[in-house]
Design a protein around this nucleic acid. Structure first.
Length: 293
DNA sequence: GGTTCTCTGCCGC
DNA sequence: GCGGCAGAGAACC
């Protein structure tokens, strides 16, 4: 667009482009392409390409390929073939390769996943709290969604998008008590939430969310600091994306992540709610930027 | 259990 | 910013 900025940004832009192409390449490949191959296509050395890839995506090319394979396995398991066929179809060299890590990949055996996962039942309920409408959803493994909005309708649509194949069950009286419990927690996060969480995400996202849960109420942390805490100081942007992908408001306290200067950055469920949550925890949203690093 | 591939720290240009 | 090496470790067969 503007030729004057060309020299400043072209390197970064072409990197992003090359990494995006590499991602698409990994996604479409039958078996994961070699690092050297991806690097050659990006016009970079394997070492440098590997570093760039991780800086921008938060994961290494291999991790990305593994996540891709896990996604493909879930898709294969939706089909009619045997579990073994699905495992081979997803790109595993042998069933044993998969079973070594099945718990990490699916959280259960593939047969159980197929039986319960695809036709999974998720109980949900909508309620009201001081922050507006709230939706709470729970799978057999634990709470899988806590979401906030001004109105209940978008929350329900969002839940349907999040679990398109699941059997969503609302209006369950027993479950209403669970919602009351969660609302109580949202009103007073310091009391803690003693409920199992069904946290679904990539290995990287899981690490970020785990680090978030270690941030105590009444304190805040910057994206950069959070990136440091998971041992990837250069991955602040990827950390921010992982925070934004959080499906469990307040339980995974992404509202406690603020910009390095203490200003509030975005919040999936609205910056106003983020400010309210922080104020409630005894942390004024501004002028407290020192995250104590 | 050996081989191949990946990843990272470090250094040089 | 980028390339390259060494060494450790993971993944694979």
């Amino acid at each position: 667009m503007r030729p004057t900025v060309h020299t400043m940004q072209s390197a970064t832009l072409s990197h992003l482009d090359a990494i995006t192409r590499a991602c698409r390449r990994i996604e479409s490949a039958e078996t994961p392409p070699l690092l050297a191959e991806l690097a050659r296509e990006a016009g970079l050395s394997p070492w440098h390409f590997q570093r760039l890839f991780k800086r921008h995506t938060g994961v290494t090319p291999r991790h990305y390929a593994q996540a891709q394979r896990a996604r493909r396995l879930r898709a294969e398991l939706q089909g009619q073939g045997s579990v073994t066929e699905a495992i081979y179809g997803a790109g595993f060299g042998a069933p044993s390769r998969f079973y070594e890590n099945s718990d990490e990949l699916l959280g259960m055996t593939p047969t159980a996943w197929r039986a319960g996962g695809a036709g999974e039942t998720i109980h949900f309920a909508l309620g009201e709290c001081s922050l507006g409408a709230i939706l709470v959803a729970e799978s057999a493994r634990g709470l899988c969604a806590i979401a906030l909005d001004d109105h209940p309708e978008p929350l329900l649509r969002e839940l349907q998008d999040q679990f398109p194949r699941a059997h969503l069950v609302g209006g369950d009286v027993a479950f209403e008590r669970r919602v009351a419990q969660v609302v109580g927690f949202v009103e007073l996060p310091a009391v803690g939430l003693e409920l199992p969480l069904d946290v679904r995400g990539s290995a990287f996202q899981q690490r970020v969310w785990q680090a978030l849960r270690a941030v105590p109420p009444g304190t805040t942390v910057s994206y950069a600091e959070l990136a440091r805490r998971i041992g990837q100081p250069a991955a602040a942007r990827a950390v921010a994306r992982a925070c934004a992908s959080n499906a469990l408001a307040v339980a995974i306290p992404c509202h406690r992540v603020v910009r390095a200067d203490g200003q509030l950055s975005g919040y999936r469920w609205g910056v106003v709610r983020k400010a309210a949550l922080l104020a409630r925890e005894g942390r004024s949203p501004q002028g407290c930027g020192d995250t104590g690093s």
